[in-house]
């Protein structure tokens, strides 16, 4: 696919790199000379200029791009670029600078297909590292909905059960399962849950501590405390 990324800073350049590694074609737009040089040294095509100008976007090939990522730190530039790109029929992704704005742009910015707040993802990573071991937050799906990967421990109440015997609270669903040291896969009902196996679960925040207690075997107090730290908002 073809992508236009505005902003060759930390977020933009890294995104461009990941897309290129996956075989996609990326053009960057960046006004700052130092950043332009750095991106070009890494072999990227860079259009020098302001990404909120239609001419610059055209030069970068917005006309035949599949999607545009407006990833600068400047909200005005990002929003204007999305408006123009939307007009050209591009899918649009806008970076925002403060958490509270996520909801506002999701609701009101009709020109923007998706809003991203990079700090949220950074916080998920930091939280996982801090909690360590048995529980890893993968993504926040909605305000109250999270995907977590849990590692079954020896003390877990469900240790030794099969997946079909596993009874999670109503607002939780198993998405994937992996035996110790094996890849995650769609859960097979007959497999048993044992120390070191991993389950990926989609759960409402309200039941997250119950899920943790069942699968990881945390004490109720510790599970509740961890559930409180569940969100990354």
């Amino acid at each position: 696919m073809r992508f236009v990324i505005i902003g060759a800073g930390r977020v933009g350049l890294r995104t461009a790199r990941v897309l290129r590694e996956e075989g996609h074609e990326v053009t960057l737009i960046e006004p700052d000379e130092t950043m332009v040089r750095r991106a070009r040294e890494q072999g990227f095509t860079v259009v020098v200029g302001d990404g909120s100008q239609e001419q610059i976007l055209e030069d970068a090939g917005v006309g035949d791009a599949d999607a545009l990522g407006a990833l600068t730190g400047d909200l005005n530039v990002n929003f204007t670029a999305c408006m123009i790109a939307n007009h050209y029929g591009c899918r649009t992704i806008m970076r925002i600078d403060e958490a509270y704005r996520e909801g506002i742009y999701r609701k009101y910015a009709a020109e923007v297909d998706e809003v991203i707040y990079p700090e949220r993802l950074g916080a998920i990573g930091a939280k996982n590292a801090l909690l360590g071991g048995t529980i890893r937050a993968i993504a926040d799906i909605a305000q109250n909905l999270q995907i977590v990967e849990l590692t079954i421990t020896h003390d877990a109440p469900v240790n030794g059960y099969t997946i079909s015997e596993l009874q999670l609270p109503a607002d939780a669903t198993v998405l994937a399962f992996g035996k110790r040291d094996e890849e995650l896969a769609i859960p097979d009902e007959d497999l048993s849950l044992e120390d070191g196996d991993r389950l990926v679960v989609l759960a409402d925040f309200d039941v997250l501590s119950d899920v943790r207690q069942l699968l990881v075997g945390e004490t109720p107090g510790r599970a509740a405390a961890n559930a409180g730290a569940g969100g990354v908002n």
């Binding site: 400047d74 909200l75 005005n76 929003f79 704005r101 506002i104 742009y105 009101y108 910015a109």
Partner: peptide, 8 residues
């Protein structure tokens, strides 16, 4: 009005 940009 709710607006896009650095004010809300």
């Amino acid at each position: 009005h709710i607006v896009a940009g650095d004010v809300d």
